[in-house]
């Protein structure tokens, strides 16, 4: 179970390969990566702020909850902060399990929870100035299904 919060970009291919190496009894790996949307070319850049210290704790708590609920062999969360351009990778999750049902469900659970329970805030800089991205009601509602 690993959590990494970093400013630097990551190499998804290398991360997934390293993640899968040496896992025993694993039949499924699910990976997801979130990237900066270009918003039809209107977005120049995005800056992600976070609460150093709490961020790691919050992500570890979410990951521990996923491990309790599903039969996972391994999991990984990488989330970046700082300045990013459209198309850049913001974050990734990977889950490994004996069967794909656990790997898919746990990956979705991690995504739903880290959207609204990990202390990150996105600010978009575009043609019309800059603005903080508002949390969506549906992000909060997404937690109800778990």
């Amino acid at each position: 179970m690993t959590v990494r919060v970093q400013e630097a970009p990551f190499d998804m291919g290398a991360e997934v390969e390293a993640f899968g190496k040496g896992l025993k009894g694993v039949g499924a790996i699910v990976t997801f990566s979130g990237i900066v949307r270009d918003e039809e070319g209107t977005l120049a850049r995005m800056v992600i702020e976070h609460y150093a210290g709490m961020t790691e704790k919050a992500l570890e708590k979410i990951e521990a909850e996923a491990v309790k609920r599903w039969n996972l062999a391994e999991s990984l969360i990488i989330h970046r902060f700082g300045e990013m351009a459209p198309g850049d990778q913001i974050m990734m999750v990977a889950t490994a399990a004996r069967h794909r049902v656990d790997a898919f469900a746990a990956a979705e659970f991690l995504m739903d929870y880290l959207k609204s329970r990990a202390p990150f805030w996105k600010k978009e800089f575009g043609e019309d100035g800059d603005s903080w991205v508002a949390a969506k009601d549906e992000d909060e509602a997404a937690l109800d299904r778990w």
Binding site: A58, I90, M111
Partner: peptide, 24 residues
């Protein structure tokens, strides 16, 4: 730790205020 506005501050060292989070 996320909490509510009626939470006690007894023994607290750090309080943080912020808008709803937008990770992912």
């Amino acid at each position: 730790e996320l909490t509510e506005f009626d939470a006690s501050l007894e023994g607290a060292r750090e309080v943080a205020f912020f808008p709803p989070m937008t990770g992912g």
